[in-house]
């Protein structure tokens, strides 16, 4: 059984004329020990999807579809069961969370809290010891556990967040922009750390970032989202270097490769802005920005289809490309 199996997931914020369809029919699978990257421009629905996985969305959001975690539907489980699943079944490193650590508690105690809550340890002292062990796993000396968040650097706080996500030995970890806003060298440290922990614990990792280059370097598979849908999915390196969908291609081209002559003094952008989810264009949502759009693209929205071994893409050109081969 796959660890995570998401089927036709929809999330809509608000109602009526103000409805914002942020996620519009997403299918995803993730096996234990696998690393799946989720990329896309700001506002395409990445965090909404992540929060939906653990039923952490704010009240007015409406969710439809299935989220099977080890075969059990997160969307229909009881609150009691959900509480057990959060942390121990699946945990999340929130976007920007390193700024939201509780300022008045020592970081060690913040890590110990879910450990006590889930009765993995029953005494304060044992939970603290376990928290210190986790800190060491993420490369912070146990003694730093006594620090308050403001006494730590951004990279150190992000390590604390990762230690906290691991506190209850989850099977699935969702990391939402875990290295955004960190310096290159610290980013490299954190990514190496995540890779090591995932391998050591056999965790399934869903890593979200707008940085396609980072994801393709870290993950096994890569899914690219646009306007609430996955428009391409496949082996990470292949999607990054030889995209099937024009949007993933444009996104990949926007990451310059140092040393590559074609990128020298030639920054690549993608004209236009991501669409407003409250006012999506008809047909293929990418058509107003697509350099290879056909006339039919304004009317028909292509579904994800097979685009080579282990790959899917949602573009009219995909079939013609395959026929040409």
């Amino acid at each position: 059984m796959t660890l995570l199996d998401v089927r036709d997931l929809h999330v809509t914020y608000g109602t009526g004329a103000a409805a914002v369809p942020a996620v519009r029919g997403v299918d995803l699978t993730l096996a234990a020990g696998q690393k799946l990257g989720l990329a896309g421009e700001s506002g395409c629905g990445k965090s909404t999807l992540a929060l939906a996985l653990l039923r952490l969305l704010p009240r007015p959001a409406r969710v439809r579809g299935e989220i099977l975690l080890d075969g059990e539907d997160v969307l229909t489980m009881s609150w009691g069961r959900l509480r057990a699943v959060r942390w121990a079944g699946a945990s999340i490193v929130f976007q920007g969370a390193m700024h939201s650590l509780n300022a008045v508690h020592r970081v060690r105690d913040q890590i110990a809290e879910p450990i006590l809550l889930h009765r993995l340890e029953t005494s304060q002292a044992a939970a603290r010891r376990r928290a210190e062990g986790l800190l060491e796993q993420v490369g912070l000396p146990a003694a730093r556990g006594g620090a308050y968040p403001h006494e730590l650097s951004g990279g150190q706080r992000q390590r604390v967040m990762i230690a906290m996500a691991l506190a209850c030995d989850p099977r699935l970890v969702v990391a939402d922009e875990p290295t955004t806003a960190l310096d290159v060298m610290i980013q490299a440290q954190i990514l190496r750390l995540i890779e090591r922990l995932v391998a050591e614990h056999g965790i399934g990792l869903l890593m979200i970032s707008h940085d396609l280059a980072v994801l393709s370097d870290t993950c096994d598979r890569l899914a690219v989202m646009y306007a609430g849908r996955i428009v391409e999915e496949g082996p990470a390196q292949r999607v990054f270097t030889a995209a099937e969908h024009p949007y993933s291609g444009a996104l990949a081209a926007a990451f310059p490769t140092v040393g590559r002559a074609a990128d020298r003094r030639a920054p690549q952008g993608l004209p236009g802005d991501p669409p407003d989810p409250a006012r999506l264009p008809g047909g293929c949502t990418f058509h107003p920005r697509c350099p290879v759009a056909l006339e039919t693209c304004a009317a028909d929205e292509p579904r994800l289809r097979e685009a080579g071994p282990g790959r899917r893409a949602a573009c009219v050109h995909v079939d013609s490309v395959k026929e040409a081969r």
């Binding site: 421009e41 700001s42 707008h210 940085d211 996104l251 920054p267 952008g269 993608l270």
Partner: peptide, 28 residues
């Protein structure tokens, strides 16, 4: 976003080419 970023950088390059504008860009 990377897509927008490329457009802004292209703008800085164009300003240099068209107006001779110098720039010091601080970045990591």
């Amino acid at each position: 976003d990377a897509s927008v970023r490329g457009e802004i950088l292209a703008l800085l390059l164009r300003l240099r080419d068209q107006l001779g504008l110098s720039a010091l860009v601080v970045t990591h």
